[in-house]
């Protein structure tokens, strides 16, 4: 498992998050939400700190992290790429677009490229079905993406 050593300052920030929820056990999910916002993901060390602050077992925290698909223990890339696999996008070839992203970036869904630049995930509908198939990079939306257009999108962020 990838391991990191958090800086004292980051740990302090995390403790502040816990404190803002009065270190209450019942607030675990909210704390995890904020923590993921803070770090971009939830590495083991972060979960350990949260467990200690909220006085619950690390196993329990890990249980919650693995239960909800929103939480991730893998760091997101600098440019998170999301492919919409909702019905409209799917029927207009989103799967082929996804395959092309996987091929070009050489990662699977849920993974991050080794240089940390890109991570790949899927989502269900961003409410822009008229533009199907839709791809998001960070906050930016790309419409009517074809497999051929994938390399241009990636190139935009590579430079």
């Amino acid at each position: 498992m990838a391991k990191i050593k958090l800086s004292e300052r980051k740990i302090q920030e995390l403790k502040e998050v816990c404190k803002s929820f009065n270190n209450e056990k019942g607030e675990l999910i909210n704390v995890l939400h904020k923590a993921q916002g803070l770090f971009g993901y939830l590495p083991a060390e972060v979960q350990e700190v949260i467990a200690k602050e909220l006085n619950v077992s690390v196993a329990h925290v890990y249980g919650v992290v693995t239960f909800y698909s929103f939480f991730t223990m893998v760091p997101k890339g600098e440019h998170p790429i999301s492919i919409c696999l909702g019905t409209a996008c799917y029927v207009r070839g989103a799967e082929k677009v996804l395959e092309e992203f996987k091929r070009i970036l050489n990662v699977q869904v849920g993974e991050t490229t080794s240089d940390g630049k890109f991570s790949l995930s899927c989502l269900r509908c961003v409410g822009a079905c008229g533009l199907a198939p839709v791809v998001m990079v960070g906050e930016k939306v790309y419409g009517r993406v074809s497999p051929d257009g994938v390399k241009d999108i990636v190139a935009e962020y590579r430079s």
Binding site: S57, H60, Y62, T66, F67
Partner: peptide, 25 residues
Amino acid sequence: CNEVQTVGALSAINRGFMAVVAPAF
């Protein structure tokens, strides 16, 4: 492990068919 012994070594993790009882990580 949790309620009676308060050891907290085991917890249910993952969900659905993938769910198992396991230690942290």
